[in-house]
Simulated assay, not measured.
Amino acid sequence: MPYRATARQYVGRPMSDLNITPLIDVMLVLLIMFILAIPIATHALQVPLPNGAPTNPIEETNVVHIDASDRLFWNGAEMDRQGLLNQLASAAEMDHQPVIRFDPDARASYATSARTIALIKDSGVDNFAFVGNDRYRNFDRVR
């Protein structure tokens, strides 16, 4: 006859099994509290993306100019930031990338110039040059 344990053998002995139900309850409550404590993302990062074909021809050497009124120009044709981004992205996708020359006016704002340089960098253009810096070597002549 096989040995069978009876209930009387376990009376008075401590239970050696771990009851994990309270542990699971506590972990679920902590998980819910962490979910509620995480702030909702209310800000958005605006990343400019090209959304069309270039409106002006892309030449072997192109000039991006900013005038004193902070207007953007591509080879003499005025355009907005999105149009400039489309031009730059199309130039960056070419097999032989053209040279992009950056030529801001001395009275152009620094913020517009910095944003335009960042736009050129983000477009993927590799052949980039600053031109006309020698004109502004002596700041007292620029007025």
Score class of each variant (00 low, 15 high):
R8V: 09
P50V: 08
A89C: 07
S113A: 07
A7E: 14
R4H: 07
Y10R: 02
I38D: 01
F128W: 10
F128Q: 05
E78A: 03
R135H: 12
D95L: 15
L31E: 13
I66K: 00
L23F: 11
A68G: 13
V99I: 15
I117A: 01
A111L: 04
Y3G: 03
L36Q: 10
V131I: 06
Y110C: 03
L31T: 15
S109D: 13
V64P: 00
E78Y: 12
L23D: 01
P48K: 07
A77S: 05
Q46G: 07
R81L: 10
V125Q: 09
A106W: 10
A89E: 03
L36N: 15
A53N: 10
T21Q: 12
N62G: 09
M79K: 06
G12S: 01
N51L: 06
P39T: 08
P22H: 01
R81V: 07
F73M: 13
A91S: 10
T112F: 00
R71W: 10
Y136Q: 04
V64M: 00
P104Q: 02
E59K: 08
T116W: 00
L23A: 09
S16Y: 04
R115C: 02
L36M: 10
N75R: 01
R143Q: 13
E60S: 11
E60V: 11
D122T: 10
A91Q: 15
N127S: 13
A114T: 13
G132V: 07
R8I: 07
A89K: 09
D140Y: 14
A37D: 09
L36Y: 03
A37T: 11
D126Q: 09
Q9F: 12
T6Q: 06
T55K: 10
A114W: 03
R101S: 15
D105M: 04
A118H: 11
H96D: 11
N19Y: 08
I66Q: 01
L23S: 02
L119W: 02
R137D: 04
M1Y: 01
A41I: 08
P50N: 08
G132W: 06
L45M: 11
R137W: 07
I120T: 08
F130R: 15
M94P: 02
L31A: 04
N133Y: 15
Y110T: 06
A68T: 09
L18A: 04
G12V: 07
W74R: 08
L18S: 06
D134V: 03
L30N: 03
D67V: 11
G76W: 06
I120Y: 08
F102G: 01
L36V: 15
M1S: 03
L84A: 02
A89M: 00
P54V: 03
D122K: 03
A89W: 00
A77P: 05
I32P: 00
F73T: 05
I120E: 11
R135Q: 09
